[in-house]
């Protein structure tokens, strides 16, 4: 949020071109803490399923330690951002025999930050452009100040079921122009 109280939003360049706009996504709440330390908390808030992809929504908290001087906390916070704001990789498709080339970096389509005196909150959204059938989605959060890769996975059944419930809004007969 700016000093004028306006939210600043940074969107990936591909937003709007790869995420289907003419459909209503199906939300599946997750609320899973996937990393916890005195300094950090990373949680998987929800997934937003589209017909041929999902948006993975993460929350990340950088906390001021209980006895930490405020200026020291601010320096640590800035250092953590300098170390990386996070890249989410799909590491599921790593079987070379299948012709898969390796981990895929997912587009970060939304990043928003807010801050109080004692913590910084980041809301992150990543676009994963696959249709899911039987293979679980294995993800890895890297390029952060966590000091380690953060691996977690989403079951294929959950993703497949969510994608099956996506509502297509052009089904009411209005259609869209050709261009």
């Amino acid at each position: 949020m700016t000093e004028n109280g306006e939210d600043l939003v940074f969107e990936g360049e591909t937003f709007g071109s790869s995420i289907p706009l003419a459909e209503v996504p199906h939300v599946v709440a997750q609320n899973r803490v996937i990393f916890e330390s005195p300094r950090h908390r990373v949680s998987l808030r929800e997934i937003r399923a589209h017909s041929h992809g999902i948006i993975v929504v993460l929350d990340r908290v950088f906390r001021r330690l209980p006895v930490e001087d405020y200026l020291a906390y601010r320096v640590a916070l800035m250092d953590s951002y300098a170390e990386g704001t996070g890249a989410l990789l799909d590491v599921s498709a790593v079987d070379a025999s299948q012709g898969n080339p390796g981990p895929v970096v997912l587009d970060c389509v939304l990043g928003q930050g807010d801050e109080t005196r004692n913590a910084s909150f980041d809301h992150l959204e990543y676009w994963c452009p696959w249709e899911f059938s039987t293979t679980d989605l294995h993800l890895s959060l890297r390029e952060t100040s966590l000091g380690q890769h953060l691996d977690f996975h989403l079951p294929a059944a959950v993703l497949r079921n969510a994608q099956a419930q996506v509502f297509t809004v052009d089904s009411d007969g209005f259609g869209f122009p050709e261009n």
């Binding site: 949020m1 080339p101 249709e131 059938s133 294929a156």
Partner: peptide, 24 residues
């Protein structure tokens, strides 16, 4: 399909995702 990603890997892409944070 998920098992057949259409995007080629590129190590150079790591860490270059366009992104920004706002501190207030």
């Amino acid at each position: 399909q998920h098992e057949e990603p259409s995007r080629a890997p590129d190590d150079d892409v790591l860490g270059t995702v366009s992104f920004g944070f706002v501190a207030s």
